[in-house]
Amino acid sequence: MLQAIRVPVKELQRCSGIVAEDVVSNDKALLLPRGSNLALLDDRAINILKGKLISEGVEYINIYLHNNSDASLITSIQDENDYQSVPPYRQIDKSLAEMALYQINDIYNRIAKGEALSELYEPLLNTARVLTQEILESEAITLSLYKVKERDEYTFVHSLNVSLLSGFLAGKLLKGDSVTEKIVIGGLLHDVGKTRIPLEILNKPCPLTAEEFAVMKGHPLLGFGILREARITDETILNVTLFHHERMDGKGYPKGLTGKDIPVEARIVAVADVFDAVTTNRVYRSGVSLYNAISLIIKDTGKHFDPKVSRELVSALGLYPPGTIVELSDGNIAVVIACNEGDLFRPTVKLMGSWAEVTSGNGRDGKVVNLRNTPNLYIKKAVGNFSK
């Protein structure tokens, strides 16, 4: 398991890793943001950074280290008390997620221009390792999912969301850091084959024709080829890319596999892939509500989705996922803020007022109510999604 280490600034050139928390000056100016990947800096940049930090009086920074040379470095100087463990943080860090998003964007764009993935893979792998630990230690992964702002962002943002949710489900189902890490990486790269799909199809602002969809369906095989060209041989990562569009009933692609013939990692990513896709607004359609997305997953369980994976998703999110706006039995409107384990129908909600108050813009910032503790109050129906 990765651990944040307190590293002397003077030793930065001997380390590579992810900055675990913001580094600020005495006057609170941000010097180095949390989530910065030191592996991306060359020696000159590291020396400039060291000079800046030292001039501001910064002697130590906390870094997530992730390779063998760093591990031996820790062992060799721990006796000097230069390196001290610091507690891991619990929520998905925004700057780390944004770094992953930047790297996916960069990788996909550069592959589309003909560059080899092998030149770009290692920095993404380093980020994925830390992202995995964030996922495994988080209890609110879905609250960290990003939303698409621009049409051209879809593939990149979707890949990050699928990675986050797949890693969360894998952590619950498979109970292993190593396999979860591979599924996180697979989620980041699962749509890499789309870099070789013509842009007029990939970014078409309306539904695809049958001929165009046939081209789009080639992206898992294209992605598998890109990974093999990059000499990526890990079977879990390859299976995610190749088989994430297979269905339990054999009606998926590219191989038409059924049931347990579909690798479990691909079955996990399939659920995350569809859940994020259907809740995202596209140019030619609006995303469905979180409640309706859960309903869709439940409806297609056994046909499209593995029941164990679907059950874990529903268990994690509840039938009314956080962010769902609901109408209560007393007529008030509320937003779901947390699901209750073991009671999928009775989440914790925050009251917003009556329907008339909410629709007129006069909704209240009301009290939090755990419906599990209020047997006479229940959800009547879901009415939408909360959006800041």
Score class of each variant (00 low, 15 high):
7 V>C: 07
8 P>Q: 08
8 P>G: 04
8 P>T: 10
14 R>L: 15
14 R>C: 04
18 I>L: 07
18 I>T: 03
27 D>L: 05
31 L>A: 06
37 N>Q: 07
37 N>W: 01
39 A>W: 00
45 A>R: 04
49 L>V: 02
50 K>Y: 01
51 G>Q: 07
52 K>M: 12
52 K>I: 09
52 K>G: 00
53 L>E: 01
62 N>Y: 03
65 L>E: 00
70 D>Q: 09
74 I>F: 06
74 I>L: 06
75 T>W: 01
77 I>E: 09
81 N>D: 07
82 D>L: 15
86 V>C: 08
89 Y>H: 03
89 Y>A: 06
100 A>D: 02
108 Y>I: 00
114 G>I: 06
122 E>I: 02
129 R>D: 10
129 R>N: 09
132 T>L: 06
136 L>I: 12
139 E>P: 06
140 A>C: 11
142 T>A: 15
143 L>Q: 10
147 K>V: 13
149 K>D: 15
150 E>Q: 13
150 E>K: 12
155 T>E: 03
163 S>L: 03
167 G>V: 04
167 G>Q: 00
168 F>W: 13
169 L>Q: 06
170 A>W: 01
175 K>M: 10
176 G>Q: 00
178 S>T: 00
186 G>Q: 00
194 K>V: 09
196 R>E: 08
200 E>H: 10
201 I>D: 12
202 L>D: 04
203 N>C: 04
206 C>D: 08
206 C>P: 02
217 K>T: 13
218 G>V: 05
220 P>W: 05
224 F>S: 00
234 D>H: 00
234 D>Q: 01
236 T>V: 14
237 I>S: 01
238 L>N: 03
243 F>W: 06
247 R>S: 13
252 G>M: 03
254 P>Q: 03
260 K>T: 04
261 D>H: 08
263 P>C: 01
265 E>D: 07
272 A>E: 09
274 V>T: 14
276 D>W: 07
279 T>R: 14
281 N>I: 13
283 V>N: 06
285 R>G: 06
285 R>Q: 13
287 G>T: 12
287 G>M: 14
289 S>V: 14
290 L>W: 07
298 I>E: 15
300 D>F: 14
302 G>T: 11
308 K>I: 09
311 R>N: 15
313 L>R: 02
318 G>F: 06
320 Y>Q: 02
322 P>F: 04
323 G>S: 04
325 I>Y: 08
328 L>Y: 05
328 L>F: 05
330 D>T: 12
332 N>Q: 13
333 I>F: 08
334 A>I: 09
335 V>H: 00
337 I>P: 06
340 N>T: 15
341 E>S: 15
353 G>S: 07
354 S>V: 11
355 W>N: 04
357 E>P: 06
358 V>A: 11
359 T>K: 10
360 S>D: 14
361 G>K: 07
362 N>K: 15
365 D>P: 02
366 G>H: 10
368 V>H: 13
374 T>L: 11
375 P>K: 06
376 N>T: 14
377 L>N: 04
379 I>R: 06
383 V>A: 08
387 S>Y: 08
388 K>R: 12
388 K>M: 12
